[in-house]
């Protein structure tokens, strides 16, 4: 029975109540849930896509620095969290669906459950202050 751990379910229930984009992944980085504000960023609805493999959803955004240089995945907060199970935060730019460059801040944290087991990760996207 491949049910999600209770700690992951509670993160989804929380994300469901928030008005900021939240992405939840499994331990491999596969996207297992995103909330309605995140749907606007991705341009897809969770009800339609369901979970997405890491290869697919990681290419939707084009993370860039201030000079429009592409940021390698290894420097992104969520990738780092998945790598070592620590929280990270970074401000950078992404290309919006309309092709505009938008400044965002991303906070990621690991879901480490009651049994001290790494169960997945969460990334919260904030519209960055100018």
């Amino acid at each position: 029975m491949s049910a999600h751990a209770i700690e992951v379910i509670l993160n989804r229930q929380l994300a469901d109540c928030l008005s900021i984009p939240v992405f939840i992944t499994d331990t491999k980085g596969n996207l297992i849930f995103y909330n309605e504000p995140a749907e606007e960023l991705l341009g897809t609805r969770f009800e339609e896509t369901g979970s997405m493999p890491v290869e697919k959803w990681s290419t939707i955004f084009t993370p860039m620095d201030e000079s429009s240089n592409v940021i390698p995945p290894a420097e992104l907060p969520l990738v780092k969290t998945l790598e070592d199970c620590y929280p990270y935060h970074k401000t950078f730019w992404i290309l919006s669906l309309k092709g505009n460059k938008e400044k965002i801040s991303v906070t990621s944290y690991p879901i480490i459950g009651r049994e001290n087991k790494f169960l997945g990760a969460v990334a919260i996207f904030w519209k960055a202050k100018d």
Binding site: M1, A3, H4, I6, R12, Q13, D16, F33
Partner: peptide
């Protein structure tokens, strides 16, 4: 059913489903 949208339809996201099915 805790949460904004109550109980989620997908069984994988229902607390307790794995032991009650």
């Amino acid at each position: 059913a805790l949460g904004r949208n109550g109980m989620i339809k997908d069984h994988n996201w229902i607390s307790g489903y794995n032991i009650a099915h």
